[in-house]
């Protein structure tokens, strides 16, 4: 397929939006201005951006505990994101969900998730609705390498295949689940082997390159939309910061050298080099994009800080549809 300049620039903007938002969130967390657990997506931007760049706006996605990138790459709003991270009433979940539960139903983003693997079966349901209503949409489940060890993933994969559902499985293989290296928790070499086990095809993709992800996703999505059933991408990627928050942890589950080595493959730098080398953009226009987005991020901090907290009366609101509880 042809990758137009427009697509290249679009993918870049998506990644920058994620990166600059996440860096800001990390700084705020470091200075104790954000409550709760923060799982940053820095380093993995090419995956969400490449996949979301290939989707129609109403294709559904489900996400993980590391969900900011998925929502932002799908077009999420900085203000509502930042306000949610601060627990403000103007946030995506009115301050009730926080980082692990951000969602935007208008963007067909069916939620980050605090339970590892739990989004995958939900994507099966969305895919089933797509099939039953013949709406032409597909659903995408993002999940980590570690999530493929849990039963929910396996039940979902088998069901999606058995019912031949329009669903794309996107594994973000960053080689760790929290502090456990992947080779200690599974005996296979590549996660993609698990797709074959359930009878659907998949591909391994360089998850540090947004164009590689975009191309693979576009190809898969076309087939899925044509009714060929589910497919899976295993995007080999890496998180630059810690499992939670920014700083290193007490245990040496990975070396500084390893992180440095992977940082050389920073997906933003990889793509910037391509944009410049191919003459699509020059350094100045790249900087202009970054400056513009950074400004939006800073405005979102201001917006969030100036927003009110939820009212105490709202505690019991939305436990059920239409009303309050006993």
């Amino acid at each position: 397929m042809e990758i137009t300049d427009e697509i290249l620039i679009d993918l870049y903007k998506r990644m920058v939006r994620v990166r600059l938002f996440e860096e800001e969130a990390g700084r705020l967390a470091e200075s104790a201005r954000l409550p709760g657990f923060l799982h940053l997506y820095v380093g993995e931007e090419a995956v969400a951006s490449g996949v979301c760049g290939a989707l129609e706006s109403q294709d559904q996605i489900t996400s993980t505990h590391r969900g900011h990138g998925h929502l932002l790459a799908k077009g999420g709003d900085f203000n509502r994101m930042m306000a949610e991270l601060m627990g403000k009433s103007t946030g995506y979940c009115n301050g009730k969900g926080g980082s692990m539960h951000i969602c935007d139903l208008d963007l067909a983003m069916l939620g980050a998730n605090g339970i590892v693997g739990a989004g995958v079966p939900i994507s099966v349901g969305a895919a089933y609705a797509n099939k039953l209503t013949n709406n032409g949409l597909i659903s995408v489940a993002f999940f980590g390498d570690g999530a493929t060890n849990i039963g929910a993933f396996h039940e979902a994969a088998n069901m999606a295949a058995a019912l031949s559902l329009p669903m794309l499985f996107v594994c973000e293989n960053n080689e760790y689940a929290e502090y456990s290296p992947r080779h200690k928790t599974m005996a296979i070499t590549d996660v993609i082997e698990r797709a074959a086990a359930y009878g659907f095809p998949g591909a391994i993709v360089d998850g540090m390159d947004c164009v590689a992800v975009f191309e693979a996703a576009s190809l898969a999505i076309e087939k899925i939309r044509n009714g060929e059933g589910p497919m899976m991408l295993e995007c080999k990627t890496y998180r630059f910061y810690d499992h939670v928050g920014v700083k290193g942890t007490a245990s040496n589950y990975r070396t500084d050298e390893e992180v440095e080595e992977m940082r050389k493959r920073d997906p933003l730098v990889v793509h910037e080099t391509r944009l410049i080398d191919s003459g699509v953009m020059d350094a100045e226009s790249i900087q202009a994009i970054k400056d513009g987005i950074q400004k939006e991020v800073e405005m979102s901090v201001e917006f969030a800080e100036n927003s009110p907290f939820p009212e105490l009366e709202d505690m019991l609101l939305d436990v059920y549809t239409n009303g309050e509880s006993s």
Partner: peptide
């Protein structure tokens, strides 16, 4: 009788 809210005030 509600899930546990995220916002520290709640």
């Amino acid at each position: 009788f509600s899930p546990i809210p995220f916002s520290p005030v709640l």
